[in-house]
Amino acid sequence: MLATPTEDPVLPAGHAAEPKWDGFRALVGCWADGHVQIRSRSGGDLTAAFPEIAIAAAGLPAGTALDGEFVIWEHDRLAFERLQQRLHRRGSTAARAAAQWPAHYVAFDLLRLDAVDLTATAYRDRRAALEALFANHGLQAPWALCPATTDPRQTAEWLSWTAVGMEGLVFKRLDQTYRPGWRGWRKYRSRHSTEALIGAVTGTLSAPVTALLGRLDAGGQLQYVGRTTVLHTAARQALGARLRDGHADHPWTGWSFSAGWGSQDQLDVRLADPVIVAEVAVDVSLDSAGRWRHPVRLLRVRTDLAASDVPPLGTDKG
């Protein structure tokens, strides 16, 4: 089951809220014959990539299927890039990765128990069964029970967990059944505004399509931190009137830029003199280098700020 975005962080009536994890969605099943299988959202088999979860899943009651997310903690923060590095490992390399970067499985739904399909039952009943599963079988690490609440005060507190990489909230109607592939849940992604320098654009300098953003590292070098979503007309006009060609010694000369986090496709970019400050709306999903994993939204050009006013690289890592 999937979620559709919402801009409203308020818990709707008749709904429960859960924290939105910066993790990797997966189904974990221990079938009636004891066979364990871990499947990604796209259907890929992850069983061999996460041997510590597969071993733990063998101890679940036969005929159990869970929906949840893998998470890895590193330096007191969720580290999505460590999950990415583990996805394609198998055999001894997967075992070594499990020892170095152990994963937890945060379960937020119970789809099958004792070979009985629960997807046609209401969320409140599936949630009660999931809590009973954890309590009755004493499930501990690498298992984790995802918190859930109907208290708006608790959801407000969860929104303060962004420093550890918590992405926001997921809202689920209490009487809702589980329908695979249906976007019946709602997800709110926490965002805040901050500043970055525009170091390049896609499109042309006079008519940019997206902006590539940078921040200065501790040595004063401009490092790439992310890219905006497609610019709206007013933003294109505002930038097009101010952007100037990047000079010969532009710090990104000769660099290539990925079309997306984890993508092999490269962007066709035009380097710009990195003096324009942009105010952008960002979420909390960062990689280990302090780059935003998801495209950010340009709010406005800050003509009142200089490059020295832009927060340095790593400021948003919490």
Score class of each variant (00 low, 15 high):
residue 38 I to Q: 02
residue 59 G to D: 06
residue 316 D to S: 13
residue 178 Y to C: 08
residue 184 G to T: 11
residue 6 T to W: 01
residue 65 A to S: 09
residue 57 A to D: 05
residue 271 L to E: 03
residue 70 F to W: 01
residue 1 M to C: 07
residue 300 R to F: 00
residue 181 G to W: 03
residue 129 A to V: 05
residue 215 R to M: 08
residue 314 G to T: 13
residue 213 L to H: 03
residue 284 V to F: 01
residue 105 Y to T: 05
residue 183 R to C: 11
residue 25 R to T: 04
residue 46 L to I: 11
residue 175 D to N: 09
residue 87 L to D: 10
residue 69 E to T: 12
residue 13 A to I: 12
residue 20 K to C: 03
residue 179 R to T: 15
residue 118 L to A: 02
residue 169 L to R: 07
residue 297 R to Y: 01
residue 72 I to F: 00
residue 112 R to D: 03
residue 262 G to E: 04
residue 153 R to Q: 08
residue 120 A to E: 04
residue 10 V to C: 07
residue 310 V to Q: 06
residue 48 A to F: 01
residue 276 I to P: 00
residue 173 R to F: 00
residue 264 Q to S: 13
residue 251 P to T: 10
residue 84 Q to W: 00
residue 125 D to Q: 13
residue 66 L to D: 08
residue 72 I to Y: 00
residue 55 I to Y: 01
residue 193 S to R: 12
residue 85 Q to M: 14
residue 288 S to K: 10
residue 40 S to H: 01
residue 121 T to I: 07
residue 241 A to R: 14
residue 228 T to S: 08
residue 72 I to L: 09
residue 148 A to G: 12
residue 77 R to C: 06
residue 73 W to P: 02
residue 8 D to L: 05
residue 266 Q to W: 01
residue 102 P to N: 10
residue 179 R to N: 07
residue 244 R to E: 14
residue 252 W to L: 10
residue 275 V to D: 09
residue 72 I to K: 03
residue 251 P to A: 06
residue 47 T to A: 09
